[in-house]
Design a protein around this nucleic acid. Structure first.
Lengths: 208, 208
DNA sequence: TCCAAAACATACTACTCGGTATGTATTTAC
DNA sequence: GTAAATACATACCGAGTAGTATGTTTTGGA
């Protein structure tokens, strides 16, 4: 009934996001956030009980957005495991710059908090990205497209590689789809020059 | 001439290391460090001008240790690029638990500082691990063992994967050498079941 | 119109923490 | 031994910050 609150909260979270992505949690004060959101600290505390609650809200909110962005694409994935993963990755890379940076921030700063907050944040984070990839990998293992290593471990390796591709250096090197292709190639075929495909082609030729 | 100072500084750095690895930079106070090192803050400030200087000293000190640990092994690497990387990785994994955790900490917290400190730390960090791997990768590319992607990007991907292998979940899953082997396999051959070797064997059989 | 609840502002508290000023004890050099 | 440099202790300061108490303004409904 007081819709003004919603837009204000959104303003606060937006301002907080911009501050948190290039300073540390400890280095961003509630005064900073209030000033950046064009309001006073009193108003800020009217909407958020504490700094921690604000950060958690920002995180859950961002993850929710990302979830929404991915849900449709994830549900409509078709083809081989490899195709699915590549599609998913491409879609992921089209997320707004800010969302991606926040995601990276969360992964880094999640240990600031103590349980039970910590556990809650970890689960929320995992549900949006690593678990989805883990599911794709599990399917790939089941269908024989991937060797049967631990799916969770593989998903974390994948996530870590994606993070590298998204951060700084990777970005200026190559285009979006080139980076996605490289990553999928590395993941499935490795970096040895004799790629599986080529060898399979040779085999086909020889075996008729 | 005052040799007591050296051992005291060592004590301080050791105590600080233990505190920093499981709390954040901001969450560890100079009082904490002093208490943990069994001395007062005044004594602490006699040896370190500031908290930042202390942290930098800890970091450079740790990197120096790691450098020392790796130098001999790195110089004596022989065989193919793949063998070299596997050896190097195995050796790296034999580093003390605390050193590895500190290394991870530095990578995460290096952005706390402003230039020129930041730049100095980044260079020191890169010199101990990523640059060495980059060199191995460059050799591999030159010798045709690896496809000619950007060596630096590949080294970062490699480092990121190593980090996953060393952190928590990876550790309890498999033994040391198993993790190293998996990582090298993934890096060179990928995770598709039809590994390059097998295909090459098939080719050899068919082509005689 | 009028009132209660929500939205926001102001001013303040309590406290932490990096850093310092100034002392005392200990070590080394001669 | 003794003087000076070093090592360490004690007590404090000032800045900054999370959080609060208490006001004032605005909003939405009856």
């Amino acid at each position: 009934m007081y819709p003004k609150s919603a837009v204000t909260i959104d303003n606060i979270l937006q301002a907080a996001a911009l501050l948190f992505v290039d300073r540390n949690y400890a280095d961003v004060s509630m005064d900073d956030i209030a000033e950046s959101a064009n309001m006073t600290k009193g108003a800020l505390y009217h909407h958020f009980q504490s700094k921690e609650k604000l950060y958690v809200a920002l995180m859950l909110n961002t993850l929710e957005e990302i979830n929404h962005h991915q849900e449709a694409s994830f549900a409509s994935l078709k083809g081989s495991c490899r195709e699915k993963m590549e599609r998913f990755l491409c879609n992921f890379m089209t997320l707004p710059e800010l969302s991606l940076r926040l995601l990276r921030l969360f992964r880094r700063d999640i240990n600031i908090f103590k349980n039970p907050t910590r556990q809650r944040l970890i689960e929320a984070y995992q549900a949006t990205v690593p678990l989805r990839i883990e599911k794709l990998i599990q399917e790939g293992i089941a269908s024989g497209e991937l060797q049967h290593y631990d799916a969770r471990l593989l998903s974390w390796l994948h996530v870590a590689m994606v993070e590298v591709m998204l951060s700084g250096y990777g970005k200026q090197m190559m285009g979006e789809e080139a980076r996605a292709t490289l990553l999928i190639t590395l993941f499935f075929d490795g970096l040895s020059p004799k790629a599986t495909n080529e060898l399979e082609n040779e085999l086909e030729v020889l075996t008729g």
